[in-house]
Nucleic acid binder design. Sequence first.
RNA 1: GCGGACGUAGUGUAGCUGGUUAUCACUUGAGCUUGCCAAGCUUAGAACUCGGGUUCAAAUCCCGGCGUCCGCACCA
Length: 565
Amino acid sequence: MNAGELLSLCKRRGFIWPSFEIYGGVAGMYDYGPLGTNLKDNIISLWRKAYRQGEGFVEIDSETVNPEPVFKASGHIDEFSDFVVYCLGCKEPFRADHLVGDLHPNPDTLSADELKSLFVENGVQCPDCEGDLGDVEEFNLMFKTNIGPGSSRAGYLRPETAQGIFVNFPHLYRYNREKLPLGVIQHGRGYRNEISPRQGMIRLREFNMMEVELFVDPDDKTWPRYDRVKGRDLRLIPEDGSERTLTLEEAVAQGIIANEVLAYFIWVTKRLLEDLGVDCSKLRFRQHLKDEMAHYAMDCWDAEVLLSYGWTEVVGIADRGCWDLSQHSKWSKQEMTHFKRFDEPREVERTVLKAKYRQLGPLFKGDAKEIASMIEACGPQDIKDGEILLEFKGEVIPISSDLFEVVDVREKVSGEKVVPHVIEPSHGLDRIFYTILEHAYRREDDYTVLSLKPQVAPIKVGVFPLMSRDGLDAKALQVYDLLSEEGIEAYYDDSGSIGKRYARMDEVGTPWCVTVDYETLEDERGLQDTVTVRDRDSSEQRRIPIPELVNVVKELLKGRDFASL
RNA sequence: GCGGACGUAGUGUAGCUGGUUAUCACUUGAGCUUGCCAAGCUUAGAACUCGGGUUCAAAUCCCGGCGUCCGCACCA
């Protein structure tokens, strides 16, 4: 199949539309039409069910515009922007820090001006044409804005929803009554100012993600339900590039997947994608290479699906370690730890330094309190030649031994503070959406069927009168109302031939069609109030009494086989 | 961002050596018909990517913008 055919169908039938098309469109931006919105919501529902009901995670919804410090801390300001320099001769763009690799030990720490002066001092020329280089420009992949009037408070559109969860960790931790593990999910939009989006809705500038952040004890990366699934197979491509199929248990035992909890959520991801309608023969999990890994990740596996564009990442399952919480703790000066209680409180003997306030006061006046706490933050190992050196307000001041005393204390310690580690399955919703459509797309002799899973199908039931006369249409409208009132997404159609109406529903993936025919109205044969239900994939029909229709559809939606009716 | 190709109703297309009421099919609406898988008849609606230039005259030729596709680069 080719992507153009499918995109054309999507546009024609109201799944997705290029945004702002009347103004010429904007690359990398799409709007969801009515059917697309339904399908997208259905994907979100199944994801939510897997994590909220399936694993007991909680869901939040945080801001898309974030103040600058959030991304200073997360590393996106620094890691997410490149300095670009254009050759004045051939106009080629270059990564500025790559051109001074030999001239500086740490070029990616330099500012634009520093890079520029390095070029000038060393006469760096364009590597392609030897031409002169222009000014160094910063290119950050985040959309920048201002919060409030003026430019005093810089803000950015979030490049991932994850930070909204991390910055709320203190609230979430208290909400969870200070216990780990703590699983939090969030879906929403993220924004990346791509240089040149390509491949339809695979690379977008504004995109939807479904992110899961699981906070765990760094010393306990096991999972209660792991044992139930550890014998299941996964198709893996580890770092060495060799593809193999292993059970979860084998992969963990061989050290290919770092830990049980990561393996478990790779499995959850596989099951979810399968439930959504991803073709499992076109699904694999690939481990990131060391140099491919994001700045925050310790280990990362991508769920990749085979599309007409080639193998494409749809979910990233990363062990982010303690990076995010440590960073936010450092920048915000807030505690971002879990208090891990010991089974029994322990008596610990420690040697500590105690400040002598009586002497410090007259000596340091207003600064005494702060200096005292710095002294007490030191240990005996910091004493050199009878004094300790403190760095205070830019100066190094010696603290002689008469300003503190060394004492042995016995303390009762009931636990320790640890920074939780984060396991993050992060789903690209738009890519999953597209994958589901591509994997469901069937075409034979100009006849198109989307074999969507009933649970994600935007319309569940088409309702038709066989003829639009003799009261069949009125009866069909009653059936339509009956289904709609039960929350079943139905679609009434009385135009053209019956075959055409089936075809229209097949093309948008509607799994079943209900037809009100003359037998519905007959009573001498005892068939009164029955309708035919037609199955999309087999074209088979069953007669069902109208009073049972709602329950039959609900059972089918739960996965009952049509042939068993 | 660079190079190449392309841009005509909702979709797919014809016209593109300048002058047409801009072709055809499907789709869509209305009416008739229709007894279960895109049937038929009548009828209606619907397009030259945008801007500038050349010309008496531009869908057609030229330049630029925007967009799409393919390579290169980028891809947290």
